[in-house]
Amino acid sequence: MIKKKVIPDVYIDALQEISNIGLGNAATALAELLDKKVDMAVPKAFFFDVEEIFDMVGGPEEIVSCVFLNLEGDIHGTVLFIFTERSTYRLIEMLTGQEVGNVTELDVMGESAVSEIGNVLTGSFMNAIGGMTGLRMNTSVPMFAFDMFGAILSTSLVASGHWDDQVLFIETVFFQETDEIRGHFFMLPETGALNRLFEALGVTEGV
């Protein structure tokens, strides 16, 4: 067994704070996109070993949509935005102004809508972090998948080359009036990328 790295609380607190601001930005962007008020629950940030994350979001066979983006610039890594099947349909319904329960499958239109939402959310999240830290970050063109969570996650890990590392997992819940959109944000930072982030934030261990 590989010994588990323990992430000091001060880093977790910093990440929680970044997530709050970053996803706050993302919620605003989503509200503009939907032209509706969007609220957000305070996000929770965790670190996991990659093996552990397969049981999240509902398990390896849970159907999810996933927007995959590469991070480039001062921080390299991979970002995954994952929505459960139901949340995916709700997002499409909101974006296209349809009644709840109208969308029951994913077509090409829906696919590009969700892809665009993932793109916008990630972009505004990264902009917020950039603004706080002065780091420059760009995202690649998004790629999309709608399938079993395990299949998507393992393929993403292989594609990103970050297997064996720890994964920063941020759970976000967006509310739109009474509806709930559950989004899961995974960031797979390249080795050293998180240190650069903490450094830029001025967070050091034991402070």
């Binding site: 995959f68 998948a145 299949a151 393929t155």
Partner: peptide, 17 residues
């Protein structure tokens, strides 16, 4: 050995399957 993702950026993930 499937190709899970679609998009303009397919080349780099790809053909790992």
């Amino acid at each position: 050995g499937a190709q899970m993702f679609s998009g303009l950026n397919e080349k780099f993930v790809l053909n790992i399957g």
